[in-house]
Design a protein around this nucleic acid. Structure first.
Lengths: 149, 149
DNA sequence: ATCGCTGCAAAAATTTTGCAGGTAA
DNA sequence: TTACCTGCAAAATTTTTGCAGCGAT
């Protein structure tokens, strides 16, 4: 059995609520719905995608935008840029920095999560050579998926 | 002397014109100005940044947008996403796929070009394992530059 | 002389914000 | 109760598009 390091299983509604509470924030119906959508998807979703996936009594689109900003600030979601200039978000487990990569089909948009990351050595070299501190990186792969070939 | 693989020096105005002509496109004043701006900068620029950098008798912002789309389609510029969801462009030499990476200061936005790329092995593995073809990748580094530390 | 290109202006799309009332804790 | 939140609507941005005239080849 393959275990994804970014599994969302651990993020129970109660835990999410607790994390919000720690930031003096509240667990409201819109936030619960948004987090639920994110939990149901293993791929990053844009604010718009989240909005349309919301149940019938969803919330305002503005609320989705506000929520994503809040959740990103609280490190409860991680933002990804998958090359099309649209911000997409994934739920983040407690303490998880969410560091992983994606393989995106440029034809149909399918996304495969890539857990491995062998960039740290290169990252250190890049940081040292240029005198940068606290260096991180973002890496995404693009190609044509089996179904689209 | 350090030679950047993505040097722009080779892109003379005449060559750029020739490349446009091959695509049945014309070298006009706005395009010449835009390409000139790009040639003067070794870092990716957004449409807006190009627009404000344009000489007094610049062109319409809409023209910048149209030009960037055109030039990207003709592979005369390459688009980069530096994490803030803004499309930025760099001039591409003839035949150059423009593959390189950036080290971006998250404080002041300074950008360092990184020519090396040791990802090909990982890229092949990722492609093979998931049955993808024509896989490429985009990698950007983020950190705090010496001046901002 | 063509066909592409541009400015201008309007439209569309995306994201942010003010505010008054509602609600979690 | 008291912050925090939300819907609604308006505003601010960002990007695209229609069109008539201009210009490169």
């Amino acid at each position: 059995m393959k275990s994804h390091s970014h599994s969302h299983a651990r993020s129970g509604s109660a835990q999410l609520k607790e994390r919000l509470r720690r930031g003096a924030r509240k667990m409201t119906a819109p936030r619960r719905a948004i987090l639920e959508i994110l939990r149901q998807h293993s791929h990053p979703l844009s604010s718009k995608e989240i909005f349309v996936a919301l149940p019938s009594a969803g919330c305002d689109l503005a609320t989705v935008y506000r929520s994503m900003h809040l959740l990103e600030g609280m490190k409860m979601v991680k933002r990804f840029d998958l090359g099309d200039g649209v911000a997409r978000y994934e739920l983040l487990g407690e303490g998880d920095d969410g560091h992983h990569h994606h393989l995106v089909c440029t034809r149909c948009g399918a996304v495969v999560e890539i857990d491995e990351c062998f960039i740290s050595e290169l990252e250190e070299k890049v940081a040292a050579r240029n005198g940068f501190k606290a260096v991180s990186h973002q890496l995404e792969f693009f190609g044509i998926c089996p179904r689209c070939q």
